[in-house]
Amino acid sequence: MNSQAQIIEHLIEKQPENKILTANLLYRDLPANFSEQAFYQTVTRLTKKGVLCHLTKGLYYRPRCSRFGKIPLSERNIIEHYTEGYHGMVIGYRMYHQYGLTTQVAKNVEVLSNVLTENRKTIRNVKVSRLDLNFDDSICVAISTLEILQNYNSIENINRSQLAEYMKKYAMNYSEDAVITALRHRKYKKSTIAFLAAFLGFWKIRNTLQQYLSSLSTYVIPQMEQFYGPA
């Protein structure tokens, strides 16, 4: 084995177990004079030996082993790779269920992440979409709310009273900056924005969301009476 191959193998073998490794990012950690061909040949050889496991195109992991054999990479490992450290968030039914808005739990997990280099990637049952944002707490809450309102009519067995409580709490802690940032980076229907504005108006929270709406349009959105009863 030549010296380059040994260094490549050492780099790979010191990576944490059961943590997703992105091949092209590992290659960038090597000195500039290292052969890309030698790198991928080493990756292929270590995969055949079982030192590495191939996950999907360009992604690998070092399996954790126990006395019973290799411990498979979990769904949680995959989600954490794309979300930890303000790099992303879970949306869709997993999020709706987390907030108690539905009893339905989807087999597939939807994730938004700034880690992804391409627009979309599916890893087992985790579907990741790229969104170039710093996912701090206020941004995650803003996106969660917009996602809930955008998909309100399609969420199975939605708990309206729970949504009413969620939106009351959201309105009391409303961050205009976070919503505007979310709207700049991810497309939402005007009716979704109007729906959010209606909740904020009900709780008398000042906002500037009318800038995204047309005064000549009528948006088909649920009435607040559905959530809070007659005024």
Rank of each mutant, 00 (worst) to 15 (best):
F227C: 09
F135Y: 09
F227Q: 10
T192A: 05
S35Y: 09
K127N: 14
K48N: 11
E176P: 02
L101N: 06
W203D: 09
G69M: 08
Y152Q: 13
T56G: 01
L46P: 07
P16E: 07
M89I: 01
I143M: 10
D29Y: 14
D136A: 03
I139P: 03
G92K: 00
Q226C: 10
V115K: 14
A106S: 15
F135K: 01
Q4S: 14
V179Y: 02
Y228H: 08
Y60R: 01
S217Q: 12
A23L: 02
L101I: 06
S66P: 09
T145M: 08
S191N: 11
Y152L: 14
L183K: 05
S191R: 14
F39Q: 05
I155L: 04
V115E: 12
P222E: 04
L25A: 11
Y170D: 05
N173A: 14
Q98M: 11
N173R: 12
A23M: 00
G100L: 09
I158W: 07
R67M: 09
E176Y: 06
N134H: 12
N207E: 01
T145C: 12
H87N: 15
L133V: 10
P230I: 11
G229T: 04
R67K: 14
C140P: 02
A23Q: 00
K204V: 09
K168M: 14
H81M: 05
K121A: 04
S215K: 11
Y170M: 05
H10K: 15
I71N: 03
F227R: 11
E156R: 13
T102Q: 08
E9K: 15
T122Y: 02
F227V: 06
R67W: 04
T44D: 13
H54V: 00
F34V: 06
A142S: 13
A182W: 03
R64N: 10
L209R: 01
R130G: 08
L21P: 03
E225M: 04
T102H: 04
L26T: 00
S144N: 13
T208N: 15
H97F: 11
L131K: 10
L55S: 04
S215Y: 10
T42I: 06
N77F: 07
Y219I: 05
V141P: 00
M1V: 13
G201K: 06
I143E: 09
Q41V: 08
E9R: 15
S129R: 15
L209T: 01
V90Y: 01
E118S: 15
Q211W: 00
G50K: 02
V109S: 06
V115P: 01
R45H: 07
N108P: 04
Y212H: 03
K70F: 13
K14E: 13
I78R: 08
E176V: 00
Y96T: 04
M89F: 00
G85T: 04
E80F: 05
F135G: 03
L21C: 01
E13Y: 08
F202D: 01
L46F: 07
G100I: 10
L52V: 05
K169L: 11
H54M: 02
T192V: 07
V179N: 01
R28N: 11
A38L: 12
L213M: 00
I221M: 08
N77Y: 07
T47H: 02
I205D: 08
G69V: 08
C53I: 11
T103M: 07
E165F: 11
L11M: 13
I155R: 03
L213T: 00
F135D: 02
L200A: 02
M224Q: 12
L149E: 08
V115R: 15
F227P: 09
T103S: 11
Y188F: 15
E147N: 14
E17C: 08
T56N: 06
